[in-house]
Design a protein around this nucleic acid. Structure first.
Lengths: 203, 203
DNA sequence: GGGTGAGATATACAGCGTGTCTATACAGAT
DNA sequence: ATCTGTATAGACACGCTGTATATCTCACCC
C-alpha cells in the first residue's frame, strides 16, 4: 500500500494539490515529449516539485501513468453518460451515446492516443480497459432495447451487432475517422449514420 | 549512416542470416515480455549473438523495432493484395480485400498489437503508417469502382464511405471484433456484412 | 508551548539499459 | 599477403528507476 492521498482540500502549505500539479505536468509532458522521454525527473521539474515527491505521491512510474489515465477521463465529461440511459427512445440513446464518446475522445486526442497506446504496449491502463468493458456493456443494453422496441432485422445476431458498434465507437475508430480533418461533430454524425445501418432498423 | 546490410544470401560463415535470427528473437521477446522488458541485451542473448552484433546490424533499438515491423509484415502474406485489384466485380474486390487483411492481422495478433501500439507511443512505425495510407488509397479506388458500376445511394459522400471502411478494416477494429472469441474468418464475415451496409449498394 | 504526524525534500546508492569507442579475431575475396 | 566485412569483447558515460535514510516545515492538538 502506498502512502494514501489525504483529503484533497487539506489545509496545506502553499498549494492545495501537489498531486494535481504533478498530473497536469505529467499530461503536458506525455503529449509533448512522448513516453520515450517521459521520466519522473522531468515531470517533477515541470511541476516545480522534487523527484522524491512524485515517488511519494504515486509510488512508481506506472502508478503515475495509471493515475494520469483517470485524471484525463475525469476531464472528459464522461459523467454525462448516465443521461443516455434515461432516453425513452433507444435509437436516440444510441445517438447520444455516440455524441458523449466523441466529445470525450475529442477533449484531448493527443493525450488519449498516447495513453491508450501505452496501455497496449505495457499492459497497463486498467482504467481504460475497464471503461471499454463498460462501453461494450452499455451498447449491449441499447441494442437489446432497440430490438424490443423496433423489429429484429432478420438474421443479425445481437452479439455481432454489438461487436460492430463497439469497434465503430472506439477511440481508434474515432481517430481514423477524424483523420481527414473532420471535427468531433462530423465524426459523430458519420458514426451515427453507420450505427443506424449496422443496427439495421427500417425506421 | 549505419554499416549497411550486405547481400542477404552472402556466402557467410556459419549461418546465412544473423539478421534473421536476431529478428526472430526480437519478435519472440516482444510478444513474450512486452516492450518494457525488451532490451538489446536480451534479444542478443536469445539470438545467441553478442550485444554488439545487434548494434552492428541494426544501429539502435528503434531501428531494430522498425526492421521487426517490416519483418512481420513480410510474414503476413500481404503480397496477395495485388490479386484484389484484378477482380472485375468491385464488390468481390472489397470482400477479398477484407479477407487478405484479416488473414494478415490474424497471423500474429499479439506481435501486431504491440508493434502498432509502440508506433503510436513512440512515433515510430513508419512502415505501418505507410501501409495504412496504402490501405486507405486502395479502399478509395474500390469504392469509386463500386459507384461507377452500381449506383450511388443518394447523399453519401465518397470520402465518408472510405473513411468508415478504413476504420472498419483497421487492425484495431479487427481486434475489437475478435474479442468475443471470433476467428479470423468470422471477423472477416462480419466486416464484409458491415462493409456492404456502409457502401449501401442495393444489389 | 511542546509534541505529533504528514507532506515535501536532499542525498546517496544499486541496478539496468542505451549507445559509443577501441581493439581484436576470423573468413572469404583479390 | 592483404583487404574488407562481420562478429565480438571490454570498458565507459549517461540517464532513468526505485529504495533507503535523514531532515525540514507546517498544521493541529493537548
Amino acid at each position: 500500500m502506498r502512502p494514501r492521498q489525504t483529503q484533497p482540500d487539506r489545509a496545506n502549505p502553499a498549494d492545495a494539490g501537489t498531486r494535481a500539479r504533478i498530473l497536469e505536468a505529467a499530461r503536458d509532458l506525455a503529449i509533448e515529449a512522448g513516453f520515450r522521454r517521459f521520466s519522473i525527473g522531468k515531470v517533477a521539474e515541470r511541476a516545480g516539485v522534487s523527484r522524491m515527491t512524485v515517488y511519494y505521491q504515486f509510488g512508481t512510474r506506472d502508478e503515475l501513468l495509471e493515475a494520469l489515465f483517470d485524471h484525463m477521463a475525469a476531464r472528459g465529461r464522461l459523467d454525462r453518460l448516465p443521461d443516455v440511459f434515461v432516453q425513452p427512445e433507444p435509437l436516440d440513446a444510441l445517438a447520444q451515446f455516440i455524441d458523449v464518446f466523441c466529445d470525450f475522445w475529442a477533449t484531448d486526442p493527443a493525450g488519449m492516443r498516447r495513453m491508450r497506446a501505452w496501455a497496449r504496449v505495457e499492459g497497463g491502463g486498467e482504467a481504460a480497459r475497464e471503461r471499454d468493458r463498460w462501453r461494450r456493456q452499455a451498447l449491449d443494453t441499447i441494442v437489446k432495447r432497440i430490438r424490443e422496441r423496433h423489429g429484429v432485422p432478420a438474421e443479425e445476431e445481437v452479439d455481432d451487432v454489438v461487436a460492430l458498434l463497439y469497434a465503430l465507437t472506439s477511440f481508434e475508430s474515432y481517430e481514423y475517422l477524424a483523420e481527414g480533418g473532420r471535427s468531433a461533430a462530423e465524426v459523430a454524425a458519420l458514426m451515427k449514420r453507420a450505427a443506424r445501418e449496422i443496427v439495421g432498423v427500417r425506421d
